[in-house]
């Protein structure tokens, strides 16, 4: 008669235990590896980044064709732009004497500088497009309807902030493209009745694009507007959760 001996832990089990149940791991992640439904919910609920999500969502909302991930990707572009933007800030000085040369230097002498600049530029374009498309998807799914009225308004503000972020960045390379685009753009703003000329003067720090405009656009671009956008995004995400997750048919 064969005696049944319980199989001891395999090598994989031991390794797993060492990796995910040790003192250090558990001090960082309160949960074990998310391989059981309980741990999967805990990992979302206890992780500061993941807990932007609820732990469970309606199954129609994980279909790609419902959101096309457009809101999430807009946010992802914002994060990517922050990272590449910080790297560019290491080298770029917003003065008329240096700006253009710094950009040239970034492209020619800084390791991966050209790549960073290209990424920053193309991500910025992508973000403008993605935010617009996100707005279209929200509209056509009727997701602005009650109780999400206010989050739609927050969205419209985010759309404007996205345009402004991109616009203020456009001047920074201080080349002909930048200079004249901002000249044309601020002329448009300046044509407003009553407040136009004041707004233009305030934006440019003078009557035409010059050194004072560069420092203003830079400050708005790297701190003022990103801060505002981050605040409104926080409100946007908070409201999505408060309004009961994404819209679904009654």
């Amino acid at each position: 008669m064969a005696v049944e001996t319980p199989a001891g832990p395999t090598l994989a089990d031991k390794l797993y235990d060492k990796l995910f149940h040790n003192y250090v791991w558990k001090s960082i992640f309160r949960t074990g590896y998310p391989n059981t439904p309980r741990n999967q919910m805990l990992v979302v609920a206890t992780n500061v980044f993941l807990h932007l999500h609820p732990t469970r969502i309606h199954r129609t909302h994980v279909k790609i064709t419902h959101t096309y991930c457009l809101g999430g990707l807009s946010f992802f572009m914002f994060l990517g732009l922050t990272v590449t933007g910080i790297l560019l800030m290491f080298y770029y000085v917003p003065s008329v004497e240096r700006a253009y040369l710094d950009i040239q230097n970034i492209q020619t002498t800084v390791q991966f500088g050209q790549l960073m600049r290209n990424m920053h530029r193309w991500m910025a374009h992508a973000m403008v497009i993605l935010v617009f498309l996100h707005m279209m998807r929200v509209f056509y799914t009727g997701a602005y309807k009650p109780p999400r009225e206010f989050n739609w308004v927050v969205g419209v503000i985010l759309l404007v902030l996205t345009f402004l972020l991109s616009f203020t960045g456009y001047l920074l390379p201080w080349d002909q493209l930048a200079f004249w685009a901002i000249t044309v753009g601020t002329n448009i703003a300046g044509s407003a009745p009553v407040l136009g000329p004041k707004t233009r003067f305030w934006l440019l720090g003078g009557f035409e694009v010059g050194p004072d405009s560069l420092i203003r656009f830079y400050t708005l671009h790297v701190i003022g507007l990103p801060l505002l956008a981050a605040i409104f995004m926080a409100v946007h995400f908070w409201r999505i959760r408060r309004d009961g997750g994404l819209a679904r048919p009654l």
């Binding site: 998310p34 439904p37 999967q40 919910m41 990992v43 979302v44 993941l50 999500h53 609820p54 732990t55 469970r56 969502i57 309606h58 199954r59 129609t60 909302h61 994980v62 790609i64 991930c69």
Partner: peptide, 12 residues
Amino acid sequence: EEVLVWPDLVFI
């Protein structure tokens, strides 16, 4: 009608 965010959504 709900699914788990991890893995279903986080993966996407």
